[in-house]
Design a protein around this nucleic acid. Structure first.
Length: 926
DNA sequence: GCAAGGTC
């Protein structure tokens, strides 16, 4: 870059990612400025503008320093795709998307525009990560729109430290388009996958099952997201592992030895054995020759190092572990402490301090604290030798330092207990980081009894060092007596003890954060959001011990996708996306290429999931009752689009077949929009074609290929007719006049002469003369004939008995919701293998019913609760989900012991009583 | 009404 060094002062607009950075950088740069720094408000009350003079490469600059608050723009679908019923969710894989500045950011946008118009340069001070680069381009877009002549620069800084900042402003570079592209890719993929799957599974399942946890299940959203689902996956996987665990007995030999100096406990170096017989043989050998010989005595100095400097994930994990504080609450409190200046920025990946940080100054501030002040003093006293430069955790986001105290407090009056705890954790953690490790002396003694090796160890803490201030950690010490190599002794006790294997614990919040961190799910700033989302969505619960279990809903959803064979609930998808993003950011893959490949794959996956929706139904059916109502969502499943709705102007009109077999063209916006076009009742088949009517507007209006029933139309009309519902089709109008519409064919009274028109508006007028059904509020039938009044099972049952599909050999029933034939299929999942079910063949329809639930009047098999208690269909009892339990070990083995006595399995070795094992034998010590 | 990512 060239400074120019001309006499003219240029105006430079500087933009940071957040107000605090704008203030900090402006503060640093204006320090030596002659006129000092002026502050004024922008249009947004949070984002103030700092002004001062500065010289960049000899160029006199009038610096204006302001900020945004994170992303300035949002990505969403274009308006016509934003309503849930506006389109088939499949379309969301190609629906146009747009970036825009949302309402609540318009103030910031106006400030940027106003200031940009008066400036010659724009310098971007966004965080130096991919998201920051993307935000930088959002700022560029807004600013260059207002002033095309702006010279755009990027400042790269690794910490808000004077030297860094002063260097970076003299070494401005151009913003990195590739970094921003990578984020564009992520945003678009997240949006399309999230919205399509969320709409799909919510509309599919919400109204089909009684979701007993929700007060109003109409408002429940069954969301899917590439971060929230893998997070749920971790919880479910652990839960299944626990369910699948089969406890197993094991045996171990323990030895103790009392001496004048105390007691040593020696552990069997084989650990434990699952084979009782083997364990007994070895134990007998030891008992026969019990003399122990010391084979090794090792003394070592051991160090216990203080933790690395604190980043967000560690803060959340430790607050959860030490205080049982949720990650969400931790971040809330940390944000508070940050806003009030007590701690540094709390969203950071960085766990090593820059060499330029004045660590001693931070310690110095704490010297006056009544509790840890004296420790801080010791740290700064060279005579104590307690100081140690902090370790490097290996993470650096290049934007923020590790979390550390920035202002002394002996406790503020307005602080909650959580504020006190968190501040204390941050301070003690920082003091620990710059302290020497604890030092211990560890002694290990190994002995040999009849060829079996045992070991004991003891530890003495020599110097506590950082443990003096970091009260959250401890380092247990235990003494053992002195032993010498070759020394021999007779053990005080030698026992054969039994134990049982235990399943792993449910995941704690710290475990969960760990899993997410390792798998790259979410960022330091969002991980707690994903966890909270699982609780908000009723996918998981957290107990008082901060341990997570899946709810029935969470388990059912994961099980459904798992049964489909998809790993949508595993972290691989996110990992793959992360790899692709990385590739885009370094230029080895192109943005468009990654987007199209990934979306193509996800679209195929979405289509397949939709075809296999029965798996989701099965899984949900295990935990929840089916509803008797057929919800509006289900009833108005997507059909082929005929035209845009002229009434609501928002949704599509689609061709549908009603339960009575008649056709109609209805608006997907139902029930908000009730626009409908009734068609003649004499239609046998109707298919939307790709032909567009050349007459009707607004277009396109896709024409429909009709096939009429010969005997129901006059002989001078063709059976086949390519028609239009836009109002231009005289033949269709005439047939409606002659045959009536399907809507009235349910009624026993002849419909002739009452149907009038096929255009939307006149159809509405015509319908307005009829009264709506009092049950379902639909027109076209009375409440006596309302399909929703007949129970699904009895209707489907009778239909199922009376109707057979025309397809050779295939049994079918008309779909309860859309009338399309439902083909009888056979389940092949573990839980329901061989069980028959009906599934609607219409791609957009969700109807599903077990055959036995339709045929058995007592519905015995279908009660979901019954399934839960049945081990055959209960996935919780399946085993094999996780690591799988071992099969029960062989018992009642008989062998002859060293003493010649027969010994059978599963009895106490000491007294022979089969009711207990040796470790609890009352006679053991005798 | 949907995601995840910034941020107040």
């Amino acid at each position: 870059m060239s400074g120019g060094g001309g006499g003219r002062t240029i105006r430079v607009l500087n933009v940071a990612e957040k107000p605090s950075v704008a203030k900090a950088v402006a503060g640093i740069l204006s320090k030596s400025s002659q006129g000092g720094m002026r502050v004024r408000d922008g249009r947004s009350r949070f984002n103030r503008i700092f002004e001062f003079a500065y010289t960049i490469h000899g160029q006199q600059c009038h610096m204006l320093f302001t900020s945004v608050t994170g992303h300035l723009m949002e990505l969403d679908f274009e308006d016509r795709y934003r309503k849930w019923h506006s389109c088939d969710p499949l379309l969301l894989y190609q629906a146009p998307v747009r970036k825009f500045v949302p309402e609540d950011k318009l103030d910031i946008k106006r400030t940027l525009e106003e200031e940009a118009r008066k400036c010659q340069w724009l310098v971007l001070w966004l965080d130096c990560d991919r998201e920051g680069e993307n935000i930088a381009f959002e700022v560029v877009e807004v600013c260059t729109e207002a002033n095309r002549h702006l010279n755009v620069w990027r400042a790269r800084f690794s910490a808000l430290i004077e030297r860094d900042i002063r260097e970076s402003v003299q070494a401005l570079v151009r913003p990195n388009q590739l970094f921003a592209d990578a984020v564009d890719v992520r945003q678009e993929i997240d949006l399309r996958i999230g919205a399509s799957f969320t709409r799909f599974q919510t509309m599919l399942l919400r109204d089909a099952f009684n979701l007993d946890f929700a007060t109003d299940d109409r408002n429940v959203i069954l969301s899917y997201g590439p971060c929230q689902f893998p997070t749920l996956g971790f919880i479910v996987e652990r839960y299944w592992e626990i369910q699948a665990h089969e406890s197993e007995e094991f045996w171990t030999i323990n030895c103790t030895h009392n001496s004048d100096e105390g007691t040593a406990t020696f552990n069997w170096m084989r650990g434990h054995m699952f084979d009782y017989t083997c364990a007994v043989i070895i134990y007998e050998m030891c008992v026969q020759e019990p003399t122990a010989t010391v084979t090794k005595v090792r003394q070592q100095e051991k160090l216990k190092y203080p933790p690395h400097p604190l980043n967000t994930i560690e803060l959340e994990k430790r607050a959860s572990r030490y205080f049982r504080m949720s990650s969400e609450q931790t971040m809330k409190v940390a944000e508070d402490l940050y806003q009030t200046g007590f701690i540094s920025y709390p969203r950071t990946e960085t766990d090593s301090f820059s060499e330029r940080t004045d660590l001693r100054a931070i310690v110095q501030e704490q010297e006056g604290h009544p509790v840890w002040g004296s420790y801080a003093q010791r740290l700064l006293d060279p005579g104590e030798g307690l100081w140690r430069n902090p370790g490097n955790g290996g993470h650096d986001d290049k934007a923020h330092p590790p979390i550390h105290p920035t202002k002394f407090s002996g406790g503020q009056s307005g602080w909650s207990q959580d504020h006190h705890r968190l501040y204390e954790l941050v301070v003690r953690h920082f003091l620990a980081c710059v302290s020497k490790p604890a030092v211990g002396a560890e002694t290990t003694v190994e002995i040999d009894i009849a060829g079996e090796m045992f070991s004991a160890s003891g530890r003495v803490i020599l110097e506590k060092n950082y443990l003096d201030v970091y009260r959250f950690e401890s380092w247990g010490g235990s003494m053992i007596p002195t032993y010498t190599f070759g020394q021999q002794f007779i053990p005080t006790t030698l026992t054969l003890d039994s134990g049982v294997t235990r399943p792993p614990s449910l995941l704690s919040e710290a475990d969960l954060l760990n899993c997410m961190d390792k798998a790259g799910i979410g960022t330091d700033a969002t991980m707690h959001d994903h966890i909270k989302k699982l609780l908000d969505r009723f996918y998981a619960t957290k107990d008082s011990n901060t341990r997570f279990s899946p709810t029935n809903l969470g388990e059912a959803l994961v099980m459904g996708y798992d049964d489909m064979g998809y790993e949508l609930w595993k972290p691989y998808l996110r990992a793959m996306m992360e790899n692709d993003m990385k590739a885009v950011s370094i230029g080895t893959k192109r943005k468009a290429e990654v987007l199209s490949t990934c979306l193509e794959q996800m679209k195929a996956c979405f289509l397949d999931a939709r075809l296999n929706k029965v798996k989701l139904f099965e899984a949900m059916g295990i935990f929840f009752e089916r509803t008797s109502r057929s919800g509006a969502d289900e009833q108005h499943a997507v059909g082929d689009v005929v035209r845009r709705c002229g009434v609501c102007q928002e949704s599509d009109m689609v061709l549908k077949r009603k339960p009575d077999g008649n056709f109609m063209v209805g608006c997907l916006g139902y029930p908000q929009c009730r626009n409908v076009v009734w068609l003649p009742g004499s239609i046998a088949e109707a298919t939307v074609t790709t032909n567009v009517c050349s007459v009707c507007s607004p277009g396109p209006v896709f024409m429909i290929q009709f096939k009429f029933r010969r005997l129901e139309i006059p002989p001078n009309y063709n059976v086949d007719h390519l028609g239009c519902i836009g109002g231009c089709d005289e033949i269709l109008k005439q047939l409606v006049e002659i045959c009536g519409t399907g809507s009235r064919n349910l009624s026993t009274t002849p419909a002739r002469g009452r149907g009038t028109a096929t255009s939307s508006s006149s159809a509405q007028r015509s319908n307005s003369r009829q009264s709506a059904c009092t049950h379902c509020r639909q027109y076209g039938h009375s409440s006596n004939d309302c399909p929703s009044q007949t129970s699904r099972s009895s209707r489907a049952r009778s239909q199922g008995m009376n109707q057979q599909s025309d397809n050779a050999g295939e049994s079918s029933i008309p779909c309860d919701t859309c009338g399309t034939p439902c083909i009888l299929r056979t389940a092949n999942t573990e839980s329901n293998r061989g069980r028959k079910f009906y599934s609607c063949q219409s791609q957009g329809c969700n109807f599903f019913a077990w055959e036995d639930s339709l045929n058995n009047s007592n519905r015995g098999r279908t009660g979901p609760r019954a399934n839960v208690s049945s081990s055959a269909s209960n996935p919780r009892a399946r085993g094999g989900r996780g690591r799988g339990g071992r099969s029960g070990r062989a018992v009642d083995t008989t062998f002859v012991s060293a003493t010649g006595d027969p010994i059978s399995g599963r009895r106490c070795f000491v007294c022979g009583d089969p009711s207990h094992f040796a470790n609890v034998c009352p006679n053991r010590d005798t």
